[in-house]
């Protein structure tokens, strides 16, 4: 039973409801349940924050090294170079997010139009 295997109008929505909503909100509800049992200043929270951050960081790494869409057809070295330069610019600009993004995008676009 794949997404395109049933012609009924409701089937795509049902597919998304089960594979999308159930598979994500179940984890969120578990988080509320567990979060209600941890004290605000708990040492445990430092660990939880570190794990949550490393997970999101892994998403970042994968989005740069194994991207989707049109970005996938660009050279990996250009993407990494743009990201590193953007991150450096963000630090030089005293942690201004928009500076980091603009520098990375400028380098990426310059590289793409030069190629």
């Amino acid at each position: 039973m794949s997404y395109f295997s049933n012609d009924a109008w409701w089937w795509p929505f049902f597919f998304i409801l089960i594979a999308g909503w159930l598979a994500t909100d179940a984890w969120r509800y578990l988080g509320v349940y567990l979060g209600g049992r941890i004290r605000d200043d708990s040492e445990m929270l430092v660990l939880v924050r570190a794990i949550a951050t490393a997970l999101v960081a892994a998403v970042i790494g994968n989005l740069i090294l194994f991207p989707s869409g049109e970005l996938a057809s660009t050279p990996a070295a250009l993407r990494i170079g743009a990201a590193v330069a953007g991150f450096a610019a963000y630090h030089i600009a005293r942690k201004t997010v928009i500076v980091g993004i603009i520098v990375a995008e400028a380098i990426l676009l310059a590289g793409l139009y030069a190629l």
């Binding site: 395109f4 578990l30 567990l34 979060g35 929270l45 997970l55």
Partner: peptide, 30 residues
């Protein structure tokens, strides 16, 4: 969906990619 996965396989893949939501919610609730 592109790969033509079954509903069960899609649930599994999405659930794996979303485990990170639990520690994020645990951190934000307090």
């Amino acid at each position: 969906i592109i790969a033509g996965n079954s509903l069960a396989a899609a649930v599994f893949a999405v659930a794996l990619s979303s485990v990170r939501l639990t520690p994020m919610v645990v951190a934000i609730v307090p």
